[in-house]
Amino acid sequence: MGERLLGPADVRELASGLGLRPTKTLGQNFVIDANTVRRIVRDAEVAPEDVVLEVGPGLGSLTLALLPAASRVVAVEVDPALAQRLPATVAERAPDLADRLEVVPDNALRVAELPGPPPTALVANLPYNVAVPVVLHLLGAFPSIRHGLVMVQAEVADRLTAGPGGKVYGVPSVKMAWYAHARRAGNVGRAVFWPAPNVDSGLVAFTRREPPSTSASRKEVFAAIDAAFAQRRKTLRAALAGWAGSAAAAEAALRAAGVDPTARGESLDVEAFTRIAEHRPPSPTIG
C-alpha cells in the first residue's frame, strides 16, 4: 500500500501539474505524510463494508488510503480542477481500486443527495473555515452515516467534543451531541501539511446516537440552542426572552422544563435544551 500513497514530492508535483497554488479561501492544506492518512483510516475504524463520504479530497492523499479499506469512497470536491484530476490520480496509483471511487463535484455545505448506496462513514480532512457547518449539515442530510473521523483545527475539535460547563462548550458542542457521541482522537502537527497551516489540528471521532426522544423537532431544538448562546453571558431567562416572547414566558418554559432560569446555556446538555424546546410557548396568532 505504501507506494500508492502520496508523499511530499508527489503532492507538489500534482499541484504543479494543475498550476495549483493552495488558497486560504478554500482552506486548502494538503496532507503530505503517508503515516498520517494511515492513522486517520485506522482511527476512523473504516470497515470493508463501509461507504465512506470524503469531503475535500484535494489531491487524493486520504482518498488513496481509504480506498483499500472501504467498499466505496464518495469524494465531494468543490474545486473543479481537483475534482477532475482525482480519478486520474487513483487510476495511476491504484488502478485495481479505481472502480471504488465516485467523485462528486459539489459544495459539501449544499449537497443533499449522493449517487449509489448511502454513505455509512464520514472521513475527511476538513477546510478549517467551514468544518463545523459541514459536519452538522452532513449528519443532518445523511442519517445513514453511523460513524466517522474528521481532521479539523484543534480549537474546533475542542468545541465539537466539549461537555457542559466549560468556556469552549457552545452551539457546535450541543448540536454535535444531538447527532453523535464525539471524542478527541488525538492531535496532528503542522508539518504533515503543505502549505503548513499556522494552527494545530485535531482529530474528532464520532458514533451516531439516537437523538433525544422529544415532541420538538430538530429545528425547534436548534432554535433554542442558538438563542441561549447568542447572549451566552446572560441568564437563560434573559437570553431566551426573544425566543419565548418575553422574559416571563422564558422563565415559565424553563421552569416547566426543570431548568433553573438563572442558569446559563453553557451549563446545559442537549437533553435539557430538548425539554426547553418542548415547552416553548406557542406564537401569538395575529388576526
Rank of each mutant, 00 (worst) to 15 (best):
L66V: 01
T89M: 06
T89E: 15
A75T: 11
V51Y: 07
A81S: 14
A83Y: 12
A83G: 13
G56I: 03
P57T: 14
A91Q: 15
A91S: 15
P68C: 05
V51R: 11
D79N: 15
A65C: 03
L66S: 01
P80A: 03
V55Y: 13
D79F: 08
Q84A: 15
E49A: 09
D79C: 08
V78Y: 13
S71E: 12
V76W: 15
A75L: 05
L86S: 09
A75H: 11
P68N: 03
A69E: 09
A83Q: 13
Q84D: 14
V78K: 15
A47W: 08
L86W: 06
V51T: 15
P48R: 14
R85H: 10
L64K: 02
D79H: 09
A65N: 07
R72P: 05
E54Y: 07
S71I: 00
A70P: 05
V51D: 12
L67D: 01
P57Y: 12
R85I: 12
G56F: 13
A65Y: 10
P68F: 01
V74A: 06
A70W: 11
V90E: 10
P48E: 15
V73N: 05
V73C: 03
L82T: 14
E49M: 00
A47S: 09
E92F: 02
P80L: 03
L86M: 10
P80E: 09
P48M: 13
L82R: 06
P48Y: 11
L62I: 07
E77L: 14
S61Y: 00
Q84N: 04
R85L: 14
P68L: 02
R85N: 02
L86F: 07
